[in-house]
Amino acid sequence: MSLAISTTDLEKSYGSVRALDGISLAVEQGEFFGLLGPNGAGKTTFINILVGLVRKSDGEASVFGHDVESEYRAARDRIGLAPQEFNVDRFFPIREVLTHKAGYHGITGEEAKARADRALRTVGIYDKRNTRFDWLSGGMKRRFMLARALVSDPDLLILDEPTAGVDVELRHDLWEIITELNDDGTTILLTTHYIEEAERLCDTVAIMDQGEKLTVASPESLMARGNDTIRLRLESPPTRPPKIDDERIQEMTIEGESLVVTAPTGGEVAPALVRSLDRQGHTVVDMDISRTSLEEVFVSLTGTDEAETAPETEPAAPEGML
């Protein structure tokens, strides 16, 4: 079985700027794959090469075994794209935009209309079907971008920052829809710089920075690479951290009444730590272990804190005519 996405040494240069610097990635069919990186990492460039909006400078890229340049029609027929920017036909009501998009994929007539209606119902804006895109609210526009990607019933759904700037309710709605699609077998490539989104949804995450792939792993194994924080509240906190002979411990500090210990796999270190403290006469009255977050791993890999946690609110006012 061919890979849903396969790239080898993929490069893209704009003059002296290297937007992609030899990216090799393999996305299995049915996988939920996340591309994580700060702005300018090359995520959108990578996607645009797959769909034909950017021409690669070098390397290979294929979708379901079809080269994206020499077999571009077969590759594009399998892809549904929801880009970050709103690039929707302004001349027609949104239902008609969807029937046109279905038509480009060879689906016409009543079948195209049925597909359009189903996609609009899936994202919850069917009652706006006769409205033009410009008159939708910001959240509805984001929903429509997903509907357009779904109307051709793609095997590979590419979502470029699908929840950028949306409110909590919509974000969760979108997560639910794409999770169901993935459960039904659709391969999903998601780019995001919302760490929570990647952590919650993705089977595998590739972290990119400045056009390079830094690592590829599951969110769990990435988090396992970082240190957990064990916070122990002591009955009589000492002024200085006690000496504990355990090489797994990275750091110990006193914060108020608590001893704060950082160590990998905190759950394994904690029992021995409590026993050592007890032997030294310190009584532990409370303990909390917080696992390292993907965000911390991301920051340590990219050296940037540009990745964000998802915002809680977004203005819902219509953006009006362009």
């Binding site: 909006l53 029609r73 920017e85 690039n87 998009k101 480009y104």
Partner: peptide, 17 residues
């Protein structure tokens, strides 16, 4: 106009020759 508003991408990313 399609380029200006980028909706020509709908055609460009379609499986048309």
């Amino acid at each position: 106009h399609g380029r200006w508003n980028e909706y020509i991408h709908e055609v460009q990313t379609a499986p048309l020759s």
